[in-house]
């Protein structure tokens, strides 16, 4: 992490250098010499929703791994709110700062119920003692109801999460994000394996979530990205190839070459 010297101290709010909610600059990650991220830079304004597209292996998931502390970048700056250096924090600390994530492969807790999945995600104290003696508060119960309703799983609440259909698991994971109530949501391929109707509902859902959350969505489904109607970043070989509205980036020759034209 050669940039550590230039990064602001994680505790000093005075060192804030950017208004961006999320600030990635010159981030590189290599796996055995292969550059999965190659000097990637990305800036996200508070309240924004951003769609990330790009061919397989472009580094979209790796970018999310870096932001959530799963992967440490070799070089580069990753700041939340301009003050928190995410390259120095672990997964739990980053989650506590308010970054939530939906995985590309839906990962819900299959052996517990739908409702318990929401309970696990629900914002609240995360300590050992707090969870040993935890009693559900009326507010929590209400919030669980709300979330289950939003993701349309109210009638499946007692089912094992493993018994849900693929699309329902995707929604459960989005529901878990809602319950976690992070400032920034990273959503990796939310409509993979969904029917057209489900895809449409998911676009609606994300727009609703975007009303009071900042969202990053990775998706290959162009009609879905179009339905979102937000700024798009095209990733290719680990860096940003183009940025702008979907129409703007689709018109760029390089984008057509590497991605859309295939």
């Amino acid at each position: 992490m050669t940039s550590a010297a230039t990064a602001p101290a994680p505790v000093a709010p005075a060192a804030r250098t950017t208004d961006a909610l999320l600030y990635l600059d010159a981030v590189s990650v290599s796996f055995d010499g292969f550059k999965a991220l190659n000097s990637l830079s990305l800036v996200l304004e508070p309240g924004e929703m951003r769609a990330i597209i790009g061919p397989n292996g472009a580094g979209k998931t790796t970018m999310m791994d870096v932001i959530t502390g799963k992967t440490r970048p070799d070089t580069g700056t990753v700041l939340l709110d301009g003050v928190h250096d995410l390259t120095r924090l672990d997964e739990a600390a980053i989650a506590e700062l308010g970054i939530g994530r939906k995985f590309q492969k839906p990962t819900v807790f299959e052996m517990v119920s739908v409702e318990e999945n929401i309970v696990l995600a629900l914002a609240g104290p995360r300590g050992v003692r707090a969870s040993l003696f935890h009693r559900r508060t009326p507010q929590e119960a209400r919030r669980i109801e709300e979330v289950l309703e939003i993701v349309r799983l109210g009638d499946r609440r007692d089912a094992l999460a493993g018994a849900l259909s693929h699309g329902q698991k995707q929604w459960l994971e989005i529901g878990m994000l809602l319950a976690q109530d992070p400032t920034l949501l990273l959503v990796d391929e939310p409509v993979a394996g969904m029917t057209d109707a489900e895809t449409e509902l998911t676009a609606d859902l994300l727009r609703r979530i975007n009303v009071d959350h900042t969202v990053v969505v990775v998706e290959h489904d162009m009609s879905f990205v179009r339905a979102l109607g937000v700024k798009v970043s095209v990733l290719h070989e680990g860096s940003v190839l183009a940025e702008g509205s979907l129409d703007q980036v689709s018109a760029e020759k390089r984008v057509i070459e590497v991605y859309l034209g295939r």
Binding site: R101, E116, V128, L132, Q180
Partner: peptide, 28 residues
Amino acid sequence: TSKFGLVLVAIRDAEARTRFLGWRVERF
């Protein structure tokens, strides 16, 4: 049967996922 126990099962079945929800797996 406490919420702690629910977190234990979550750790057992998907440890990394549990971390991304903000649980400090090692303490549990």
